[in-house]
């Protein structure tokens, strides 16, 4: 997801009897659905895991602006351009809500940004794919934001108060993102044969990476079980992925597009769509930094941060001077 394979620092899920009295007391608060607030007692592993998860999520929002930002100057109409700018601005806002939720746990924003730039913290694999045509912008809104919503709605109920509150805000804004994407695709699919082919091509390239967003299969994740116990992960990777497939296939049918998966078919007995095997090798390669755009994305982020340094310093110097003048006048 936006936070994929979050390391909980645990190699296996501890039995309840192995927990210390403090950990057990904490777990019973979680089990009773008590929200944990920043200054409450919490196990160090919970705090560290949340910092990692929320910051991965925040970095994903921020890096996620890059593939779409590429198309602001090339949007096909003024309305599409204004809409895309609003969407990208929302992503910046979502990043900021999340950074501030992470900061309540005692990590500074500059530190998180440094860790991202140093490659110590990940962002979602999905943003390492290129946006080659305008149809990609529609497809990102439809699939990528659709997958994000699927993940984020349960997180509105997660155990950490500031994260849950940030998610509520994000979810309120996110459905506009998904709809504007679908709207772009509807227009293309009702257009010329070339436009429809462009939409199909975008779906062919984005479908599998979108399914990878939910992370590896449940069986392979020790961290998921711990995160589930702490209620910072409410539904499993496979559950969310299945829901996403079930919800999205009929939408593709409506558009008249074909999913690039010959094994995709409705399974009446399960009441779900069956779908083909995901190329996990590709997923792990992208996470390791070998995706099509990993290098570009980080280079762009670091350049923006470094080019902005003088602005940050000048604003501080200006604020200090003004404060000094006010003190003199008083």
């Amino acid at each position: 997801m936006y936070a994929q394979m979050v390391d909980t620092g645990q190699s296996r899920l501890a039995g309840l009897a192995e927990l210390s009295p403090e950990e057990r007391a904490f777990q019973s608060r979680i089990d009773a659905d008590v929200k944990i607030e920043p200054r409450d007692d919490m196990p160090e592993a919970y705090r560290r895991t949340l910092i990692r998860q929320i910051q991965q999520h925040a970095h994903s929002e921020v890096v996620g602006m890059l593939p779409e930002g590429n198309w602001i100057t090339r949007a096909p109409s003024l309305q599409r351009k204004a809409t895309l700018m609003a969407k990208v601005q929302d992503e910046a806002g979502h990043g900021l809500y999340l950074y501030c939720a992470a900061e309540t746990l005692g990590v500074s924003r500059d530190r998180m940004i440094e860790d991202l730039h140093a490659g110590k913290v990940r962002y979602s694999s999905i943003f390492n794919y290129p946006t080659l045509t305008w149809a990609d912008i529609g497809t990102i809104g439809w699939l990528v934001d659709g997958a994000a919503i699927m993940n984020q709605i349960p997180l509105c109920r997660c155990s950490f108060g500031p994260y849950a509150r940030a998610m509520i805000r994000v979810c309120k804004e996110e459905s506009f993102h998904q709809r504007q994407g679908f709207d772009i695709l509807m227009t293309l699919c009702r257009g010329t044969a070339a436009q429809k082919a462009m939409a199909q091509d975008a779906l062919d390239r984005w479908w599998w990476p979108s399914l990878m967003m939910f992370g590896p299969p449940d069986a392979e994740s020790v961290h998921s079980a711990q995160s589930a116990r702490w209620k910072i992960k409410l539904l499993s990777n496979d559950e969310l992925r299945q829901r996403f497939v079930d919800q999205t296939v009929p939408q593709a049918d409506y558009l008249g597009l074909t999913m690039p998966d010959p094994e995709l078919r409705w399974n009446d007995a399960r009441g779900h769509y069956d779908f083909g095997e995901i190329d996990w090798q590709e997923f792990h390669e992208v996470l390791k930094g070998h995706g099509p755009c990993n290098h570009d994305r980080m280079a762009t982020r670091i350049k923006a941060w470094e080019d902005g340094a003088w602005v940050r310093e000048a604003a501080l110097a200006h604020a200090a001077k003004r404060a000094a003048r006010q003190r003199e006048a008083a």
């Binding site: 806002g93 900021l96 924003r109 509150r165 805000r169 940050r312 604003a315 604020a319």
Partner: peptide
């Protein structure tokens, strides 16, 4: 929520955005 800003005036402008 919270945000970073160099001074109060910028904090209000950033909060708006």
């Amino acid at each position: 929520g919270s945000l970073h800003a160099p001074d109060a005036a910028m904090a209000i402008r950033n909060a708006r955005d």
